[in-house]
């Protein structure tokens, strides 16, 4: 009997530390996939806005596929595919890569909307000052357009942060995976899930506060 008591022990301070480490993993996965996916997504959005036809049938089609297939299927499918073709990719990097591409598919459409919202007159104003096409993009079109869609981007980022829980299916010890392991051991699902949920909130809340702060600053 003593053995089983040790095996099913209750939620303790040490478990809180496990969850903290897991939250760090979640943060790492999210930051890497969101920043990588955002840069890639802006690039894709730019292609979509600049070449309507070619962009739509190449980039647009691929992105549609990533947006339409459930993330959990993408994760399992690509993780196994990586291993089948002999790429030894850890669950962590597989998760980051797939989540990043998934993010880029969402960001691409947000970014395209912002870039297209900056009309020809504003671009001409830049060009008439002697700026090159790329300078006009870098200093005029992107800052104006991407700021306009910043609130949508924050929504995407927070969504991806939460979706990173799905990386647990690959076995990487991020928040949800560790929480599920702890539930198995402690048999205290409500407590463990509440703590894990609090960690997700603690990760998301500063982002949305900081975003609101930036929006206020830009509006002045």
């Amino acid at each position: 009997m003593n053995d089983s008591i040790a095996f099913f022990s209750g939620f303790g301070p040490k478990d809180l530390w496990f969850l903290t480490q897991a939250a760090w993993q979640t943060l790492l996965i999210s930051v890497l996939s969101i920043s990588g996916g955002t840069i890639l997504g802006i690039f894709f959005g730019w292609i979509l806005s600049e070449s309507k036809v070619v962009g739509a049938i190449t980039v647009g089609f691929i992105l549609d596929a990533f947006r339409s297939v459930p993330l959990i299927i993408q994760l399992v499918l690509f993780y196994n595919l990586f291993n089948v073709i002999g790429l030894a990719v850890s669950p962590f990097w597989a998760g980051v890569t797939i989540l990043g591409v998934y993010t880029s598919a969402l960001v691409a459409n947000v970014a395209r909307g912002g870039i297209e919202a900056v009309g020809a007159p504003m671009r001409r104003a830049g060009r008439s000052l002697g700026m090159s096409y790329l300078q006009t993009m870098r200093y005029v079109v992107w800052p104006i357009g991407l700021r306009a869609v910043f609130p949508s981007w924050v929504g995407v980022a927070l969504g991806v942060l939460k979706d990173s829980a799905l990386v647990s299916v690959l076995g990487h010890p991020e928040l949800l995976k560790v929480a599920r392991d702890l539930i198995t051991r402690t048999q205290q699902p409500l407590l463990v899930l509440a703590v894990a949920g609090a960690f997700y909130f603690a990760l998301s809340f500063p982002i949305s506060r900081y975003a609101a702060h930036l929006e206020r600053k830009w509006q002045s």
């Binding site: 007159p121 504003m122 104003a125 008439s128 000052l129 002697g130 090159s132 005029v140 700021r147 830009w218």
Partner: peptide, 20 residues
């Protein structure tokens, strides 16, 4: 053209100030 345009300032009907 970019260099040549620096010789010509242009002012438009819609002033197009950079809002950011």
């Amino acid at each position: 053209l970019n260099k040549l345009r620096t010789k010509m300032g242009m002012v438009f009907q819609q002033w197009n100030s950079f809002p950011h």
